[in-house]
Amino acid sequence: MSSNAYWYIGLSIVSLVVLTIVLVRAKAVRAVFFVLIMTQMAYLIETVIYIFGNSYFYRPGFLKDSAYYDSNMGALASNMLVIPTAALLIAVYRLQWRGILVAIALIGAIEWLWVKLELYTLYWWRIEYTAIGLTMYFPFARIVYERLRRPAAGLLHSALLFLCVAPILGTLHIVPIMLFMNRGYDPGWYGDPAHDTTAFSAIYYVVMSLVIVTATKMRRGAAWVKALAIALIIFGVTRLLLATDLLRIYAWWDPWYYCLFPPVVYLLLKPISARLARGG
């Protein structure tokens, strides 16, 4: 592990401690849902500008076998911990523009320091773009947190369900690939196989999230039947991807893992769906 890793680990630990403290003090289930929602919002933004837009590159030094997967680890630290934690602080404590601007300035300063220490490389992206994006992201976070107090129905309920389930599915999908190299996708979009795999994974987990949300919203059918159907759908997709050479599997446990964890997530989503429908 390189010296870069200690900076990322330190920032991640601080974010995790703050996140835990605020969640405990919030004493509201909606705070957990809020973190999931804002994490997925960060994931979607990162998919566009980082994965498909090649805007910047993280250099945490965790993984030696693949520079791109190593960069993904840095992206996870940012989008799963740092940014959602700041959003939670702002939302729970109802910080106004002064507090929001302080948070933006602090994140901008960290980004500047990361660039100077060569922990993070900017391509066409600029720190100013981060600041502009956060001036929209953080106020939006306050709106989301307050909206979660009230019952959600219809399309809003479906959108919130998607934003809650997608970061769980996306993280469970890509992390084993980065750590164990158990599978790879080959759409041929980029010269780096890890970049190809990451890009295709981003599309894959979004589609699977929509399937699970659809199953959750269906009123007919027992939960175990729909869970089995989700597993069978993923099994069929896996066979299709293998047949078309879009997918290569390198570990015996891979098909079992990818077919079984989404139905489990679906079963966890049902109580989330009920709580969003009640609000509070």
Rank of each mutant, 00 (worst) to 15 (best):
Y6D: 09
W7D: 06
G10S: 07
G10N: 10
G10F: 09
S12F: 13
S12A: 15
V14Y: 01
L16P: 10
L19R: 09
T20R: 12
V22F: 03
V24K: 12
R25E: 13
K27G: 09
V29K: 13
R30K: 13
F34L: 06
V35D: 02
V35P: 02
V35S: 00
V35N: 07
M38W: 03
Q40S: 06
Q40W: 14
Q40M: 08
E46P: 01
E46W: 04
I49K: 06
I51K: 14
S55N: 09
S55I: 06
F57H: 15
Y58G: 07
K64R: 15
D65P: 03
S66V: 08
D70V: 06
N72E: 08
M73Y: 10
A77P: 01
V82A: 04
V82T: 10
I83H: 02
I83F: 02
P84M: 12
T85C: 05
A86H: 00
A86R: 01
A87I: 12
L88C: 08
L89F: 06
V92D: 03
Y93T: 02
R94T: 10
L95N: 08
L95Y: 12
L95Q: 13
Q96D: 11
Q96H: 12
G99I: 02
I100C: 02
L101H: 02
A103E: 14
A103F: 11
A105F: 03
A105Y: 04
L106S: 14
I107F: 09
E111T: 11
W112C: 10
K116G: 03
K116C: 03
L117S: 09
Y120I: 05
T121F: 10
Y123H: 14
W124L: 03
W125I: 10
R126P: 05
R126E: 14
E128P: 01
Y129F: 15
L134I: 06
L134F: 04
L134H: 02
L134M: 14
M136H: 07
F138E: 08
F138Y: 15
E146I: 09
E146T: 13
A152L: 15
G154V: 05
L155N: 04
S158W: 00
S158E: 07
L161M: 13
F162Q: 00
I168E: 00
L172P: 03
L172I: 07
P176W: 10
M178F: 08
F180L: 15
M181N: 13
M181V: 06
M181G: 11
N182C: 10
R183E: 04
Y185W: 11
Y185L: 11
D186F: 13
G188Q: 06
A199F: 03
S201T: 13
S201A: 14
Y204V: 02
Y205P: 03
T216E: 03
K217P: 05
R220N: 11
L228K: 08
A229C: 12
A229E: 09
L232S: 11
L232G: 06
V237C: 07
V237H: 01
T238L: 01
L240F: 04
A243H: 04
A243S: 15
D245I: 00
W252F: 12
W256F: 14
C259M: 15
P262Q: 04
V264F: 02
Y266Q: 01
I272A: 10
A274K: 08
A274W: 04
A277W: 01
R278E: 15
R278C: 06
G279K: 07
